[in-house]
């Protein structure tokens, strides 16, 4: 897959950094739906999405793609802890987004995120330092 082509299609200005473990690319206001649509058309596979807390209120999301054997890591920031869901375009993202919602409290626009690894009564955002789970059974 041609990096330059991706760059033009997605209208990105920043250059990527190429390393042994793939192409890394941070894009501030990435249109994730557009990205997913384009990459899936080009037979890329979504490996996973990594979420990392960024400051107190935001999360950085890294979309890891496998483009015919080549790794591509596109990262972007949530806005107000919200980002568009790609699950409708890429079914593989369904569970991944649910898990990120459980662990980081990120809200994915355009879909329902039912709890995956937590229980329905738990608050989402387990990884956001000191959001305690209820203490029942701990006594």
């Amino acid at each position: 897959m041609n990096v330059e082509e991706i760059r033009q299609t997605l209208g990105i200005e920043t250059p990527p950094s190429q390393r042994t473990d793939g192409i890394w690319w941070h894009i501030a206001g990435l249109n994730v739906c557009h990205m997913a649509q384009y990459l899936i058309q080009n037979e890329a596979r979504l490996i996973t999405i990594t979420a990392i807390p960024d400051g107190k209120s935001e999360c950085r999301l890294i979309y890891h793609w496998d483009c015919q054997g080549q790794l591509l890591h596109l990262s972007t920031l949530t806005q107000g802890r919200k980002i568009d869901s790609v699950a409708a375009i890429c079914p593989a993202a369904d569970w991944i987004e649910r898990e990120i919602h459980d662990l980081f409290g990120v809200i994915f626009n355009g879909r329902e995120t039912s709890p995956l690894v937590l229980r329905a009564s738990d608050p989402s955002g387990l990884f956001l330092a000191n959001i305690p789970l209820d203490e029942e059974g701990k006594e």
Binding site: I47, T50, I52, P91, A92, W95
Partner: peptide
Amino acid sequence: GEVFYYIASDGSEKPLRVKVRTPSFVNMP
């Protein structure tokens, strides 16, 4: 199937974040 690890570090002895993507997680759905 494919196991995928992501590690982020801020230069300390503890990792900032480790993401584990296991094959069953994508095969299960």
